[in-house]
Design a protein around this nucleic acid. Structure first.
Length: 294
DNA sequence: TATTTAACCTGGACGC
DNA sequence: TGCGTCCAGGTTAAAT
């Protein structure tokens, strides 16, 4: 599943392959892929053709391609979210079409095109104006509610820890809240909690300052290691722009490892349902809070 | 206001 | 072989 390391790997590929190129043609083959663009596929295509891609940026799991500014108008960008199974692929125009190819973007140089492929259709593309934030940077209007991610140089550790310790909810739920901290999904939440020896159902407001700091440090470590490995791939649903899978799956300690021994203490890793998804944890290293039923 | 839940969606795995 | 059911989970609107 695309979380921060996977999205950043894709952003890096887009930086190398599409920045500086001018859009020649846009083909929207599935309306759901552009459902969050108010004008629909025709409007997105009409506004994108003829524009030049100026950069490739990201916050959390959102990435966007700022377009060259037009005098007298707000600068637009092409926003992409990969959802659970979205892929942005760079392919030769004559390459065979993928089964779930939803959007094709061709360029004036006739070189490789950009393809949005998405099996489960939770992801999508839209055009959005870039707007200034209270913190002094510029993000798409649809991304202003997303918090900075932990590998953002401007991420405020103290502010995050304070907000986390005010939350009256489970610590895993807080880690998955993109308005508190972005980029963390189910996989890296479980891995970070295991490293920090915290059970996901522990109430966030019961964490000491030291525990919150330790958790943030482990989040950063996991994300950094996964990024270095090119991300985590389970079933070929996540690939970089070249179609290659990441290698971090083999480094996971607990996620997807129900019934296997904990790499730290040897206890058997357990799986439990939480927030309509699976949580993996070591019952010895990560003691459940008393109130938790599981 | 803060927090939690449900809906969206497809295809692979599994049991019968 | 074929059918039905379950499961994966990021985001957001709706509910509590």
């Amino acid at each position: 599943m695309p979380e921060l390391p996977e999205v950043e790997t894709v952003r890096d590929g887009l930086q190398r392959w599409v920045v500086g190129r001018t859009v020649a043609v846009v083909e929207v083959r599935h309306p759901r892929a552009v459902r969050r663009h108010p004008g629909g596929g025709d409007d997105l295509a009409a506004r994108l053709v003829g524009t030049r891609i100026a950069a490739a940026a990201r916050r959390g799991k959102y990435l966007w391609l700022p377009l060259d500014a037009v005098a007298g108008a707000a600068q637009d960008c092409l926003v992409a979210h990969l959802g659970m199974s979205g892929q942005l692929l760079v392919r030769a125009p004559q390459a065979p079409q993928e089964r779930h190819l939803h959007v094709r973007i061709g360029f004036t140089d006739g070189g490789p095109e950009l393809r949005f492929v998405d099996q489960r259709t939770f992801g999508g593309l839209l055009l959005d104006p870039l707007v200034p934030t209270a913190e002094g940077d510029t993000v798409p209007a649809r991304v202003t509610h997303i918090a900075r991610d932990p590998i953002d140089p401007a991420f405020d550790d103290g502010l995050f820890q304070a907000r986390l310790r005010r939350r009256d909810s489970a610590v895993k739920r807080a880690l998955l809240d993109q308005t508190l901290v972005s980029g963390i999904g189910n996989i890296y939440a479980d891995e970070s909690l295991w490293r920090a020896r915290l059970h996901g159902q522990r109430r966030a407001r019961t964490l000491t300052r030291a525990a919150a700091g330790e958790l943030l440090g482990q989040v950063r470590a996991v994300l950094g290691e996964a990024l270095a490995a090119g991300g985590t791939s389970f079933d070929a649903l996540y690939v970089d722009v070249d179609g290659h899978s990441g290698y971090f799956e083999r480094s996971l300690a607990v996620y997807g490892r129900e019934g296997e021994p904990c790499p730290r203490c040897g206890a058997i890793v357990r799986r439990t349902a939480f927030m309509n998804r699976s949580s993996f944890f070591c019952p010895r290293c990560q003691r459940p809070p008393r109130a938790a039923t599981e």
